[in-house]
Write a protein that binds this DNA or RNA. Structure first.
Lengths: 237, 237
DNA sequence: CGTGTGATTGACGCCTGTCAACGTCTGTGG
DNA sequence: CCACAGACGTTGACAGGCGTCAATCACACG
Protein backbone atom coordinates (compact mmCIF):
# COMPACT_ATOMS: atom_id res chain seq x y z
CA UNK A 1 0.00 0.00 0.00
CA UNK A 2 2.89 2.36 0.42
CA UNK A 3 4.18 4.67 -2.24
CA UNK A 4 7.17 3.21 -4.01
CA UNK A 5 9.15 6.04 -5.64
CA UNK A 6 10.38 4.05 -8.59
CA UNK A 7 6.82 3.17 -9.55
CA UNK A 8 5.87 6.80 -10.04
CA UNK A 9 8.34 7.13 -12.87
CA UNK A 10 7.27 3.98 -14.62
CA UNK A 11 3.59 4.78 -14.51
CA UNK A 12 2.37 5.85 -17.91
CA UNK A 13 -1.32 6.17 -17.40
CA UNK A 14 -1.61 9.91 -16.98
CA UNK A 15 -0.35 10.93 -20.42
CA UNK A 16 -1.82 12.19 -23.64
CA UNK A 17 -1.81 8.72 -25.10
CA UNK A 18 -4.76 8.11 -22.83
CA UNK A 19 -7.93 9.27 -24.59
CA UNK A 20 -9.29 10.90 -21.49
CA UNK A 21 -6.25 13.08 -21.00
CA UNK A 22 -5.39 13.95 -24.57
CA UNK A 23 -6.76 17.47 -24.32
CA UNK A 24 -4.87 18.45 -21.19
CA UNK A 25 -2.41 21.36 -21.36
CA UNK A 26 1.24 20.79 -20.50
CA UNK A 27 0.67 22.51 -17.23
CA UNK A 28 -2.32 20.38 -16.31
CA UNK A 29 -0.47 17.25 -17.29
CA UNK A 30 2.64 17.96 -15.27
CA UNK A 31 0.33 18.91 -12.41
CA UNK A 32 -1.16 15.43 -12.55
CA UNK A 33 2.26 13.84 -12.87
CA UNK A 34 3.47 15.62 -9.77
CA UNK A 35 0.38 14.94 -7.76
CA UNK A 36 -0.20 11.34 -8.67
CA UNK A 37 0.39 8.68 -6.09
CA UNK A 38 1.44 5.43 -7.68
CA UNK A 39 0.78 2.31 -5.68
CA UNK A 40 1.22 -1.40 -6.00
CA UNK A 41 -1.62 -3.58 -4.69
CA UNK A 42 -1.58 -7.30 -4.17
CA UNK A 43 -4.52 -9.54 -5.09
CA UNK A 44 -7.22 -9.23 -2.47
CA UNK A 45 -6.57 -5.60 -1.60
CA UNK A 46 -9.65 -3.43 -1.45
CA UNK A 47 -9.18 0.05 -2.93
CA UNK A 48 -12.43 1.34 -1.47
CA UNK A 49 -15.54 -0.06 0.14
CA UNK A 50 -19.16 0.45 -0.76
CA UNK A 51 -20.57 3.15 1.48
CA UNK A 52 -17.25 4.81 2.22
CA UNK A 53 -16.29 8.32 1.23
CA UNK A 54 -13.89 8.54 -1.69
CA UNK A 55 -11.59 11.51 -2.02
CA UNK A 56 -10.00 10.72 -5.33
CA UNK A 57 -10.00 8.40 -8.28
CA UNK A 58 -7.69 5.64 -9.48
CA UNK A 59 -6.30 5.14 -12.93
CA UNK A 60 -5.30 1.53 -13.46
CA UNK A 61 -1.81 1.09 -14.82
CA UNK A 62 -1.62 -2.68 -14.60
CA UNK A 63 -3.60 -5.59 -13.18
CA UNK A 64 -7.32 -6.19 -12.81
CA UNK A 65 -9.84 -4.77 -10.36
CA UNK A 66 -13.31 -6.15 -9.82
CA UNK A 67 -15.99 -3.61 -9.02
CA UNK A 68 -19.01 -4.98 -7.20
CA UNK A 69 -22.03 -4.13 -5.14
CA UNK A 70 -23.19 -6.06 -2.13
CA UNK A 71 -26.77 -7.24 -2.40
CA UNK A 72 -29.09 -9.53 -0.48
CA UNK A 73 -27.40 -11.62 2.21
CA UNK A 74 -24.06 -10.01 1.43
CA UNK A 75 -23.97 -11.64 -1.95
CA UNK A 76 -21.71 -9.75 -4.32
CA UNK A 77 -22.85 -8.60 -7.72
CA UNK A 78 -19.95 -7.82 -10.02
CA UNK A 79 -20.72 -4.69 -12.01
CA UNK A 80 -17.59 -4.50 -14.11
CA UNK A 81 -13.87 -5.08 -14.27
CA UNK A 82 -11.30 -2.34 -14.58
CA UNK A 83 -7.94 -2.87 -16.27
CA UNK A 84 -5.13 -0.87 -17.83
CA UNK A 85 -6.21 2.71 -18.58
CA UNK A 86 -9.60 2.36 -16.94
CA UNK A 87 -10.44 4.77 -14.20
CA UNK A 88 -12.57 3.99 -11.15
CA UNK A 89 -14.02 5.94 -8.28
CA UNK A 90 -14.74 9.14 -10.16
CA UNK A 91 -18.47 8.53 -10.19
CA UNK A 92 -18.86 9.07 -6.45
CA UNK A 93 -16.70 12.17 -6.49
CA UNK A 94 -18.73 13.84 -9.19
CA UNK A 95 -22.13 12.84 -7.85
CA UNK A 96 -21.15 13.79 -4.29
CA UNK A 97 -22.32 10.42 -3.07
CA UNK A 98 -20.70 7.71 -1.04
CA UNK A 99 -19.09 4.90 -2.99
CA UNK A 100 -21.84 2.68 -4.35
CA UNK A 101 -19.46 -0.15 -5.11
CA UNK A 102 -16.44 -1.93 -3.68
CA UNK A 103 -13.25 -2.15 -5.73
CA UNK A 104 -11.06 -5.19 -5.09
CA UNK A 105 -7.85 -6.23 -6.79
CA UNK A 106 -8.07 -9.68 -8.35
CA UNK A 107 -4.79 -9.56 -10.26
CA UNK A 108 -1.81 -7.72 -8.77
CA UNK A 109 -2.21 -4.11 -9.78
CA UNK A 110 -0.46 -0.77 -10.08
CA UNK A 111 -2.68 2.30 -9.83
CA UNK A 112 -2.27 6.06 -9.94
CA UNK A 113 -4.32 8.02 -7.47
CA UNK A 114 -5.46 11.60 -8.10
CA UNK A 115 -7.50 13.73 -5.71
CA UNK A 116 -11.13 14.52 -6.40
CA UNK A 117 -10.44 18.22 -6.08
CA UNK A 118 -8.05 18.05 -9.02
CA UNK A 119 -10.60 16.13 -11.04
CA UNK A 120 -13.31 18.67 -10.37
CA UNK A 121 -11.00 21.52 -11.31
CA UNK A 122 -10.18 19.83 -14.57
CA UNK A 123 -13.87 19.35 -15.35
CA UNK A 124 -14.60 22.96 -14.52
CA UNK A 125 -11.71 24.51 -16.36
CA UNK A 126 -11.06 22.32 -19.35
CA UNK A 127 -14.10 21.96 -21.57
CA UNK A 128 -12.57 19.32 -23.79
CA UNK A 129 -11.57 17.19 -20.85
CA UNK A 130 -15.10 17.60 -19.58
CA UNK A 131 -16.49 16.29 -22.83
CA UNK A 132 -14.16 13.30 -22.81
CA UNK A 133 -15.10 12.36 -19.28
CA UNK A 134 -18.76 12.83 -20.06
CA UNK A 135 -18.38 10.51 -23.03
CA UNK A 136 -16.80 7.91 -20.82
CA UNK A 137 -19.60 8.15 -18.31
CA UNK A 138 -22.29 8.08 -20.95
CA UNK A 139 -20.79 5.01 -22.56
CA UNK A 140 -20.75 3.29 -19.19
CA UNK A 141 -24.36 4.24 -18.75
CA UNK A 142 -25.20 2.79 -22.14
CA UNK A 143 -23.47 -0.45 -21.21
CA UNK A 144 -25.31 -0.59 -17.91
CA UNK A 145 -28.63 -0.27 -19.73
CA UNK A 146 -27.60 -3.03 -22.07
CA UNK A 147 -26.73 -5.20 -19.12
CA UNK A 148 -30.08 -4.55 -17.45
CA UNK A 149 -31.92 -5.70 -20.54
CA UNK A 150 -29.83 -8.84 -20.86
CA UNK A 151 -30.08 -9.83 -17.26
CA UNK A 152 -33.82 -9.23 -17.19
CA UNK A 153 -34.64 -11.12 -20.35
CA UNK A 154 -32.10 -13.85 -20.84
CA UNK A 155 -31.81 -17.23 -19.18
CA UNK A 156 -28.83 -18.04 -16.99
CA UNK A 157 -27.41 -20.20 -19.77
CA UNK A 158 -27.58 -17.36 -22.28
CA UNK A 159 -26.10 -14.90 -19.84
CA UNK A 160 -23.17 -17.15 -19.01
CA UNK A 161 -22.35 -17.60 -22.69
CA UNK A 162 -22.62 -13.87 -23.19
CA UNK A 163 -20.31 -13.14 -20.29
CA UNK A 164 -17.68 -15.49 -21.71
CA UNK A 165 -17.82 -13.59 -24.99
CA UNK A 166 -17.55 -10.25 -23.22
CA UNK A 167 -14.60 -11.42 -21.18
CA UNK A 168 -12.92 -12.67 -24.34
CA UNK A 169 -13.41 -9.28 -25.97
CA UNK A 170 -12.22 -7.32 -22.99
CA UNK A 171 -9.26 -9.40 -21.86
CA UNK A 172 -8.42 -11.43 -24.94
CA UNK A 173 -6.99 -14.91 -25.34
CA UNK A 174 -3.37 -16.01 -25.19
CA UNK A 175 -1.69 -18.16 -27.83
CA UNK A 176 -3.40 -21.24 -26.46
CA UNK A 177 -6.82 -19.55 -26.64
CA UNK A 178 -6.87 -19.31 -22.88
CA UNK A 179 -8.83 -16.43 -21.44
CA UNK A 180 -6.53 -13.76 -20.01
CA UNK A 181 -8.55 -13.35 -16.84
CA UNK A 182 -8.85 -15.90 -14.10
CA UNK A 183 -12.06 -16.05 -12.11
CA UNK A 184 -13.40 -18.44 -9.53
CA UNK A 185 -16.68 -20.18 -10.25
CA UNK A 186 -18.21 -18.05 -7.57
CA UNK A 187 -17.04 -14.84 -9.23
CA UNK A 188 -18.51 -16.02 -12.51
CA UNK A 189 -21.80 -16.67 -10.75
CA UNK A 190 -21.63 -13.19 -9.24
CA UNK A 191 -21.41 -11.64 -12.68
CA UNK A 192 -24.21 -13.70 -14.15
CA UNK A 193 -26.34 -13.43 -11.05
CA UNK A 194 -26.91 -17.09 -10.34
CA UNK A 195 -25.83 -19.91 -8.02
CA UNK A 196 -22.27 -21.21 -8.15
CA UNK A 197 -23.57 -24.72 -8.79
CA UNK A 198 -25.48 -23.53 -11.83
CA UNK A 199 -22.34 -22.01 -13.31
CA UNK A 200 -20.45 -25.25 -12.74
CA UNK A 201 -23.14 -27.33 -14.39
CA UNK A 202 -23.48 -25.00 -17.36
CA UNK A 203 -19.72 -24.78 -17.85
CA UNK A 204 -19.47 -28.53 -18.06
CA UNK A 205 -22.31 -28.57 -20.56
CA UNK A 206 -20.43 -25.99 -22.63
CA UNK A 207 -17.41 -28.26 -22.35
CA UNK A 208 -19.40 -31.26 -23.58
CA UNK A 209 -20.61 -29.16 -26.48
CA UNK A 210 -16.97 -28.37 -27.34
CA UNK A 211 -17.50 -24.66 -26.81
CA UNK A 212 -14.84 -24.41 -24.13
CA UNK A 213 -12.21 -26.49 -22.35
CA UNK A 214 -11.54 -26.35 -18.65
CA UNK A 215 -8.50 -27.00 -16.54
CA UNK A 216 -8.89 -25.58 -13.08
CA UNK A 217 -9.59 -21.89 -13.43
CA UNK A 218 -7.99 -21.69 -16.83
CA UNK A 219 -10.60 -21.52 -19.52
CA UNK A 220 -9.94 -22.22 -23.16
CA UNK A 221 -12.39 -20.62 -25.58
CA UNK A 222 -12.83 -23.05 -28.46
CA UNK A 223 -15.85 -21.87 -30.36
CA UNK A 224 -16.70 -18.18 -30.24
CA UNK A 225 -19.51 -18.24 -32.82
CA UNK A 226 -21.02 -21.17 -30.94
CA UNK A 227 -20.97 -19.27 -27.69
CA UNK A 228 -22.49 -16.25 -29.38
CA UNK A 229 -25.29 -18.41 -30.66
CA UNK A 230 -25.98 -19.83 -27.21
CA UNK A 231 -25.90 -16.29 -25.82
CA UNK A 232 -28.30 -14.90 -28.42
CA UNK A 233 -25.70 -12.39 -29.55
CA UNK A 234 -26.62 -11.96 -33.17
CA UNK A 235 -25.90 -8.33 -33.80
CA UNK A 236 -22.99 -8.04 -31.42
CA UNK A 237 -20.02 -6.10 -32.76
CA UNK B 1 -45.86 17.58 -33.40
CA UNK B 2 -45.76 21.14 -34.63
CA UNK B 3 -44.49 24.05 -32.67
CA UNK B 4 -47.30 25.86 -30.91
CA UNK B 5 -46.16 29.40 -30.09
CA UNK B 6 -48.22 29.78 -26.96
CA UNK B 7 -46.60 26.68 -25.47
CA UNK B 8 -43.14 28.19 -25.70
CA UNK B 9 -44.12 30.93 -23.32
CA UNK B 10 -45.69 28.62 -20.79
CA UNK B 11 -42.78 26.21 -20.69
CA UNK B 12 -40.80 26.71 -17.52
CA UNK B 13 -38.28 23.94 -17.69
CA UNK B 14 -35.25 25.85 -18.92
CA UNK B 15 -34.88 28.21 -15.97
CA UNK B 16 -32.62 28.58 -12.98
CA UNK B 17 -35.15 26.86 -10.76
CA UNK B 18 -34.03 23.69 -12.51
CA UNK B 19 -30.95 22.35 -10.73
CA UNK B 20 -29.19 21.55 -13.96
CA UNK B 21 -29.47 25.09 -15.26
CA UNK B 22 -28.94 27.07 -12.11
CA UNK B 23 -25.39 28.05 -12.99
CA UNK B 24 -26.16 29.40 -16.47
CA UNK B 25 -25.45 33.05 -17.24
CA UNK B 26 -28.27 35.33 -18.33
CA UNK B 27 -26.97 35.18 -21.82
CA UNK B 28 -26.84 31.39 -21.90
CA UNK B 29 -30.30 31.18 -20.42
CA UNK B 30 -31.95 33.54 -22.88
CA UNK B 31 -30.09 31.67 -25.61
CA UNK B 32 -31.81 28.48 -24.52
CA UNK B 33 -35.15 30.25 -24.20
CA UNK B 34 -34.89 31.54 -27.75
CA UNK B 35 -33.72 28.29 -29.20
CA UNK B 36 -36.02 25.91 -27.43
CA UNK B 37 -38.73 24.20 -29.39
CA UNK B 38 -41.71 23.42 -27.21
CA UNK B 39 -43.95 20.60 -28.38
CA UNK B 40 -47.05 18.79 -27.26
CA UNK B 41 -47.09 15.01 -27.73
CA UNK B 42 -50.06 12.72 -27.38
CA UNK B 43 -49.83 9.31 -25.67
CA UNK B 44 -48.19 6.82 -27.98
CA UNK B 45 -45.89 9.30 -29.71
CA UNK B 46 -42.29 8.19 -30.02
CA UNK B 47 -39.74 10.96 -29.44
CA UNK B 48 -36.87 8.91 -30.80
CA UNK B 49 -36.17 5.30 -31.69
CA UNK B 50 -33.39 3.02 -30.54
CA UNK B 51 -30.68 3.01 -33.18
CA UNK B 52 -31.57 6.40 -34.63
CA UNK B 53 -29.36 9.45 -34.58
CA UNK B 54 -30.37 12.10 -32.08
CA UNK B 55 -29.48 15.71 -32.68
CA UNK B 56 -30.71 17.22 -29.48
CA UNK B 57 -32.19 16.51 -26.09
CA UNK B 58 -35.62 16.93 -24.55
CA UNK B 59 -36.48 18.49 -21.24
CA UNK B 60 -39.84 17.22 -20.01
CA UNK B 61 -42.22 19.95 -18.96
CA UNK B 62 -45.28 17.82 -18.34
CA UNK B 63 -46.45 14.23 -18.83
CA UNK B 64 -44.61 10.92 -18.67
CA UNK B 65 -42.21 9.28 -21.10
CA UNK B 66 -41.14 5.66 -20.90
CA UNK B 67 -37.60 4.92 -21.96
CA UNK B 68 -36.96 1.37 -23.08
CA UNK B 69 -34.61 -0.92 -24.95
CA UNK B 70 -35.72 -3.64 -27.29
CA UNK B 71 -34.34 -7.05 -26.38
CA UNK B 72 -34.85 -10.63 -27.46
CA UNK B 73 -37.82 -11.19 -29.75
CA UNK B 74 -38.61 -7.49 -29.74
CA UNK B 75 -39.55 -7.63 -26.09
CA UNK B 76 -39.26 -4.21 -24.50
CA UNK B 77 -37.27 -3.62 -21.34
CA UNK B 78 -38.23 -0.41 -19.61
CA UNK B 79 -35.12 1.32 -18.32
CA UNK B 80 -36.72 4.30 -16.67
CA UNK B 81 -39.48 6.87 -16.79
CA UNK B 82 -38.95 10.56 -17.40
CA UNK B 83 -41.27 13.20 -16.03
CA UNK B 84 -41.31 16.94 -15.26
CA UNK B 85 -37.79 18.39 -15.23
CA UNK B 86 -36.11 15.19 -16.38
CA UNK B 87 -34.03 15.36 -19.51
CA UNK B 88 -33.64 12.57 -22.04
CA UNK B 89 -31.55 11.97 -25.11
CA UNK B 90 -28.41 13.76 -23.91
CA UNK B 91 -26.53 10.51 -23.36
CA UNK B 92 -26.28 9.67 -27.05
CA UNK B 93 -25.25 13.20 -27.95
CA UNK B 94 -22.39 13.23 -25.51
CA UNK B 95 -21.16 9.72 -26.21
CA UNK B 96 -21.46 10.24 -29.98
CA UNK B 97 -23.45 7.06 -30.25
CA UNK B 98 -26.81 6.22 -31.77
CA UNK B 99 -29.77 6.22 -29.41
CA UNK B 100 -29.58 3.09 -27.28
CA UNK B 101 -33.19 3.42 -26.17
CA UNK B 102 -36.62 4.36 -27.47
CA UNK B 103 -38.58 7.15 -25.77
CA UNK B 104 -42.36 6.86 -25.94
CA UNK B 105 -44.99 9.11 -24.41
CA UNK B 106 -47.34 7.25 -22.09
CA UNK B 107 -49.07 10.28 -20.62
CA UNK B 108 -49.70 13.34 -22.82
CA UNK B 109 -46.56 15.41 -22.62
CA UNK B 110 -45.03 18.81 -23.27
CA UNK B 111 -41.30 18.88 -23.99
CA UNK B 112 -38.65 21.46 -24.78
CA UNK B 113 -36.12 20.49 -27.40
CA UNK B 114 -32.59 21.86 -27.49
CA UNK B 115 -29.92 21.03 -30.06
CA UNK B 116 -26.96 18.86 -29.18
CA UNK B 117 -24.57 21.51 -30.40
CA UNK B 118 -25.85 23.93 -27.81
CA UNK B 119 -25.52 21.29 -25.11
CA UNK B 120 -21.94 20.55 -26.05
CA UNK B 121 -21.09 24.24 -26.07
CA UNK B 122 -22.51 24.63 -22.61
CA UNK B 123 -20.49 21.68 -21.34
CA UNK B 124 -17.33 23.07 -22.89
CA UNK B 125 -17.76 26.64 -21.77
CA UNK B 126 -19.52 26.52 -18.46
CA UNK B 127 -17.64 24.46 -15.89
CA UNK B 128 -20.38 24.59 -13.32
CA UNK B 129 -22.99 23.40 -15.77
CA UNK B 130 -20.60 20.65 -16.70
CA UNK B 131 -20.38 19.54 -13.11
CA UNK B 132 -24.16 19.57 -12.71
CA UNK B 133 -24.67 17.47 -15.81
CA UNK B 134 -21.93 15.10 -14.75
CA UNK B 135 -23.64 14.71 -11.40
CA UNK B 136 -26.88 13.86 -13.11
CA UNK B 137 -25.20 11.28 -15.30
CA UNK B 138 -23.28 9.76 -12.43
CA UNK B 139 -26.43 9.47 -10.35
CA UNK B 140 -28.14 7.71 -13.21
CA UNK B 141 -25.18 5.39 -13.45
CA UNK B 142 -25.40 4.66 -9.75
CA UNK B 143 -29.09 3.85 -10.11
CA UNK B 144 -28.41 1.60 -13.07
CA UNK B 145 -25.87 -0.34 -11.01
CA UNK B 146 -28.40 -0.66 -8.23
CA UNK B 147 -30.94 -1.96 -10.67
CA UNK B 148 -28.52 -4.53 -12.06
CA UNK B 149 -27.90 -5.92 -8.61
CA UNK B 150 -31.58 -6.12 -7.81
CA UNK B 151 -32.60 -7.71 -11.03
CA UNK B 152 -29.80 -10.25 -10.83
CA UNK B 153 -30.38 -11.28 -7.25
CA UNK B 154 -34.04 -10.85 -6.44
CA UNK B 155 -36.99 -13.04 -7.30
CA UNK B 156 -39.73 -11.75 -9.54
CA UNK B 157 -41.97 -11.31 -6.51
CA UNK B 158 -39.40 -9.16 -4.73
CA UNK B 159 -38.72 -7.12 -7.83
CA UNK B 160 -42.38 -6.40 -8.42
CA UNK B 161 -42.84 -5.19 -4.84
CA UNK B 162 -39.75 -3.06 -5.19
CA UNK B 163 -40.97 -1.50 -8.43
CA UNK B 164 -44.26 -0.57 -6.80
CA UNK B 165 -42.34 1.20 -4.05
CA UNK B 166 -40.14 3.00 -6.55
CA UNK B 167 -43.15 4.11 -8.58
CA UNK B 168 -44.81 5.36 -5.42
CA UNK B 169 -41.71 7.38 -4.57
CA UNK B 170 -41.30 8.80 -8.02
CA UNK B 171 -44.88 9.57 -8.96
CA UNK B 172 -46.62 9.73 -5.62
CA UNK B 173 -50.15 8.82 -4.59
CA UNK B 174 -53.28 10.91 -4.86
CA UNK B 175 -55.71 11.52 -1.99
CA UNK B 176 -57.14 8.05 -2.43
CA UNK B 177 -53.70 6.48 -2.27
CA UNK B 178 -53.89 5.72 -5.96
CA UNK B 179 -50.59 5.62 -7.81
CA UNK B 180 -50.15 8.65 -10.05
CA UNK B 181 -48.92 6.63 -12.99
CA UNK B 182 -51.01 4.24 -15.02
CA UNK B 183 -49.32 1.24 -16.56
CA UNK B 184 -50.61 -1.81 -18.37
CA UNK B 185 -49.80 -5.22 -16.91
CA UNK B 186 -47.49 -5.72 -19.83
CA UNK B 187 -45.58 -2.53 -19.07
CA UNK B 188 -45.18 -3.63 -15.47
CA UNK B 189 -43.83 -6.95 -16.69
CA UNK B 190 -41.42 -5.07 -18.95
CA UNK B 191 -39.98 -3.21 -15.99
CA UNK B 192 -39.65 -6.26 -13.80
CA UNK B 193 -38.44 -8.44 -16.63
CA UNK B 194 -40.97 -11.23 -16.40
CA UNK B 195 -44.08 -12.60 -18.11
CA UNK B 196 -47.31 -10.63 -18.08
CA UNK B 197 -49.09 -13.57 -16.50
CA UNK B 198 -46.65 -13.62 -13.63
CA UNK B 199 -47.30 -9.97 -12.90
CA UNK B 200 -51.03 -10.58 -12.90
CA UNK B 201 -50.74 -13.50 -10.53
CA UNK B 202 -48.40 -11.69 -8.17
CA UNK B 203 -50.55 -8.57 -8.16
CA UNK B 204 -53.57 -10.58 -7.12
CA UNK B 205 -51.52 -12.20 -4.39
CA UNK B 206 -50.49 -8.74 -3.18
CA UNK B 207 -54.18 -7.85 -3.26
CA UNK B 208 -55.08 -10.89 -1.17
CA UNK B 209 -52.37 -9.89 1.27
CA UNK B 210 -53.97 -6.43 1.55
CA UNK B 211 -50.86 -4.75 0.22
CA UNK B 212 -52.64 -3.16 -2.72
CA UNK B 213 -56.09 -2.80 -4.24
CA UNK B 214 -56.83 -3.05 -7.93
CA UNK B 215 -59.49 -1.59 -10.15
CA UNK B 216 -58.54 -1.82 -13.77
CA UNK B 217 -55.22 -0.07 -14.22
CA UNK B 218 -55.70 2.06 -11.14
CA UNK B 219 -53.61 0.76 -8.31
CA UNK B 220 -54.16 1.69 -4.68
CA UNK B 221 -51.11 1.31 -2.47
CA UNK B 222 -52.38 0.19 0.94
CA UNK B 223 -49.35 -1.00 2.84
CA UNK B 224 -46.00 0.53 1.96
CA UNK B 225 -43.99 -1.08 4.79
CA UNK B 226 -45.50 -4.41 3.82
CA UNK B 227 -44.43 -3.98 0.22
CA UNK B 228 -40.97 -2.96 1.34
CA UNK B 229 -40.72 -6.12 3.37
CA UNK B 230 -41.75 -8.26 0.43
CA UNK B 231 -39.24 -6.42 -1.74
CA UNK B 232 -36.39 -6.84 0.72
CA UNK B 233 -35.95 -3.09 0.95
CA UNK B 234 -34.63 -2.72 4.44
CA UNK B 235 -32.20 0.12 4.12
CA UNK B 236 -34.09 1.98 1.44
CA UNK B 237 -34.30 5.73 1.97
C1' DC C 1 -0.94 -34.08 8.16
C1' DG C 2 -4.84 -31.30 9.42
C1' DT C 3 -7.39 -27.35 7.80
C1' DG C 4 -9.76 -24.49 4.72
C1' DT C 5 -11.28 -22.93 0.36
C1' DG C 6 -13.01 -23.95 -3.93
C1' DA C 7 -15.05 -27.37 -7.31
C1' DT C 8 -18.23 -31.00 -8.34
C1' DT C 9 -22.22 -33.90 -8.33
C1' DG C 10 -26.79 -35.55 -6.96
C1' DA C 11 -31.45 -35.02 -5.13
C1' DC C 12 -35.38 -32.34 -4.68
C1' DG C 13 -38.83 -28.97 -5.29
C1' DC C 14 -40.51 -24.42 -6.18
C1' DC C 15 -40.74 -20.43 -8.96
C1' DT C 16 -41.71 -18.88 -13.23
C1' DG C 17 -42.24 -19.10 -18.33
C1' DT C 18 -45.19 -20.94 -21.91
C1' DC C 19 -49.37 -22.28 -24.06
C1' DA C 20 -54.14 -22.11 -24.39
C1' DA C 21 -58.75 -20.70 -23.49
C1' DC C 22 -61.77 -17.33 -22.11
C1' DG C 23 -63.56 -12.94 -20.25
C1' DT C 24 -63.79 -7.77 -20.52
C1' DC C 25 -63.78 -3.40 -22.46
C1' DT C 26 -63.50 0.04 -26.09
C1' DG C 27 -63.91 1.85 -30.44
C1' DT C 28 -65.40 1.31 -35.23
C1' DG C 29 -68.19 0.53 -39.03
C1' DG C 30 -72.29 -1.17 -41.13
C1' DC D 1 -78.19 -0.13 -32.36
C1' DC D 2 -75.66 -4.17 -32.97
C1' DA D 3 -71.83 -6.94 -34.56
C1' DC D 4 -67.20 -7.34 -34.64
C1' DA D 5 -62.36 -6.73 -34.12
C1' DG D 6 -58.62 -5.93 -31.33
C1' DA D 7 -56.19 -4.91 -27.17
C1' DC D 8 -55.82 -6.06 -22.58
C1' DG D 9 -56.69 -8.89 -18.42
C1' DT D 10 -57.40 -13.35 -16.11
C1' DT D 11 -57.09 -18.15 -15.01
C1' DG D 12 -55.60 -22.98 -15.40
C1' DA D 13 -52.44 -26.64 -16.67
C1' DC D 14 -47.92 -28.08 -17.18
C1' DA D 15 -43.03 -28.56 -17.70
C1' DG D 16 -38.53 -27.36 -16.81
C1' DG D 17 -34.92 -24.16 -15.41
C1' DC D 18 -32.64 -23.03 -11.59
C1' DG D 19 -31.93 -22.39 -6.49
C1' DT D 20 -31.00 -24.86 -2.25
C1' DC D 21 -29.13 -28.38 0.63
C1' DA D 22 -25.92 -31.90 1.44
C1' DA D 23 -22.09 -34.90 0.63
C1' DT D 24 -17.73 -35.62 -1.47
C1' DC D 25 -13.53 -34.52 -3.85
C1' DA D 26 -9.33 -31.72 -5.10
C1' DC D 27 -5.81 -28.86 -3.93
C1' DA D 28 -2.94 -25.46 -1.51
C1' DC D 29 -0.83 -24.03 2.62
C1' DG D 30 0.99 -23.60 7.28
Amino acid sequence: MKNIPSLDDQAECLTRSHTLFRHLSDKELTGLQNEKLTEFHRRGTVLYHEGSRINGFYCIEKGIIKVYKTGIDGREQIIRFARKEDIIGFRSILSHELACTTAEVIEDAVTCYISGETLINLVKNNGNFSIELMQLTCRELGEANEYITDIAQKTVRERLAEILIHLTDEFGLDDNKILRITLTREELSNIVGTATESVIRLLSEFKQDRLIELSGRKMKILNIPGLMKVGNLYNYK
